[in-house]
Design a binder for these strands. Structure first.
Lengths: 215, 215
DNA sequence: GACGTTACTGGACCGCCGGTCCAGTTGTCG
DNA sequence: CGACAACTGGACCGGCGGTCCAGTAACGTC
C-alpha cells in the first residue's frame, strides 16, 4: 500500500524489505531493543534509506501498522456482515473485537510498537491519536452507541482498545493465548449490551475466525 | 519508605528531593522527554547520585510509583470496608477501581511512566511484572473470582488495569475527566458481576470518594 | 539506444541520553 | 575527635535516533 505516487522499482523493493525486516524483528525482540541500524542492516539497506522513506522511527512503525490494518479497515466499511454493514451493531462489534485480537495475535509485537507511537507529541500541548487508532476507536464507539446511547461509549471504546496496548496482555498474546483475551472482551461486551433473543447464548454471532487482516 | 536500612541524612534528603523533582516534571512534560540529567539538575544533585540510589531510570520511576501506591496497598489489606476486608467482594472491587482511578488522576503522568517500566526485561525470555502491578492485578482477579469463578478473571483483571496505562485514557485523565473512566469501569463491573438485591441500582456501594492514596 | 535529470541510496557524522566510574567529601560511630 | 564507610557529582563511555551529501542508478525524452 505505497503512498499515492508510484515508487521507483528499487525504492519499492527496499520499502517492502524494510517493513518485512521490522516485522520479523518485532516477532523476536522487544521493541525497545530494535535499533534503526539493526532494521536497516537486516533489510540489507543503509540507515539513510530508512529515514528517507519513513521519516522517523515512529513513521516506520506506523507504516507497518497501517499496512496490516488496511484490510480490516476495508472489511468494516465495505465487507460482508458481520464485520461489514448489514449486521446488527452488537454482532458487528463482537466481530470487530475478535478481528482485532486476531490481527494483533498474528502480528506479535506489532501493537507493542504502536504503544509508543500511538500518539504524536504535536507540540507541547495535548497529542493527536494516529488515524488507525482513531478509526478503530470511532468504530467501536459508534457501534456501542447504537445499542447503549446512555453509556459513555467514547470512554468505553478507549478502555476496550487499551487491552491491546497493555504490556502484560501483549505478553499473553505472544504466548499464543489470544483466545483468552477474545473471550474476555466478548464477555464484557455481551454483559454490557442487550441481547435481544436468548439471554445466555452469544454463540450465533461468532465471526469467521479467519477473517481479514494481515496475511 | 526508604529501603530496610536507615539512610544517611543527606542521602535521605536527596532521595526525597529526587522523587519530588520527578513528580513535578511528570506533571508538566511527557515522560519520554524527561532525561536523568534533567531530573538530577532539578533536584539539585549530580547524576551519579540518582543512579547510586535508584540504579536506573526504571528504578526511579518504580520507586515513585511504589511510594504513591503504598497507602492504597495498606488500605486494601488492613483498612476499613469497603476497600478493606469485610465488605462483599463486588463492593470491594468497585471501591478499589475508584481508588485506583483516583490515585492515577491525582498523580498525573505517574502511570505514563509506569507503562514503559511496568515490566522488566529479565533476560531475553518473558518479563516479570512489577510488584505494584502484581498486587493490583491479584486483588482484582481475586475479588472478581469470588463472584464469578466461571470467568477468566486473570485476563479480566489485566483488561481493567490496562485502562490506566493507555495513552489516550491518560490524556483524558490529565484533562480532569477522571470521573468518566471511573463511571465506565463501574458500568463494566456492575454489568459483569451479579447484583444480589435489586437488578438495576448499583448506587449503594459507592465508596468514599476521598479514600486512601497519595497525599 | 544513448543521455540528462532526478530521485534514491548509504555510510560518515552529530548531539543527546542512559549508565559507569572514581576521586573527593561528608555524615556517623566508637 | 579521629577514622572509616558511605555518599556525592561531574567527567566519561557506548549507542541511539536523526541528518547530510556525494555517489549512483532508475526513468522520461529524443
Amino acid at each position: 500500500m505505497p503512498p499515492s505516487g508510484r515508487l521507483r522499482a528499487d525504492a519499492a523493493r527496499n520499502r517492502t524489505a524494510l517493513l518485512k525486516a521490522v516485522e520479523e524483528l518485532l516477532a523476536h525482540h522487544h521493541p525497545a531493543q530494535i535499533s534503526m541500524d539493526l532494521v536497516a542492516t537486516t533489510a540489507g539497506v543503509g540507515k539513510g534509506t530508512v529515514f528517507h522513506r519513513f521519516g522517523s522511527r515512529d513513521g516506520l512503525m506506523l507504516a507497518l501498522i497501517q499496512e496490516r490494518a488496511h484490510d480490516l479497515g476495508v472489511a468494516i466499511t465495505d465487507g460482508p456482515p458481520p464485520l461489514g454493514p448489514g449486521a446488527p451493531a452488537r454482532a458487528r462489534l463482537l466481530a470487530f473485537l475478535s478481528a482485532i485480537v486476531d490481527l494483533v495475535s498474528r502480528n506479535k509485537g506489532l501493537l507493542a510498537a504502536l504503544g509508543p507511537a500511538i500518539a504524536t507529541p504535536t507540540d507541547q500541548g495535548p497529542r493527536e491519536a494516529h488515524p488507525v487508532y482513531r478509526t478503530w476507536h470511532g468504530h467501536i464507539a459508534g457501534l456501542a452507541g447504537q445499542e447503549r446511547p446512555d453509556l459513555d461509549t467514547d470512554m468505553l471504546a478507549h478502555v476496550l482498545l487499551a487491552s491491546v496496548h497493555s504490556e502484560p496482555i501483549l505478553d499473553t498474546l505472544a504466548r499464543g493465548e489470544g483466545e483468552r483475551l477474545d473471550r474476555t472482551l466478548r464477555d464484557l461486551v455481551t454483559a454490557l449490551l442487550p441481547e435481544r433473543p436468548a439471554p445466555e447464548r452469544p454463540d450465533p454471532e461468532r465471526p469467521d475466525p479467519e477473517g481479514p487482516g494481515a496475511t
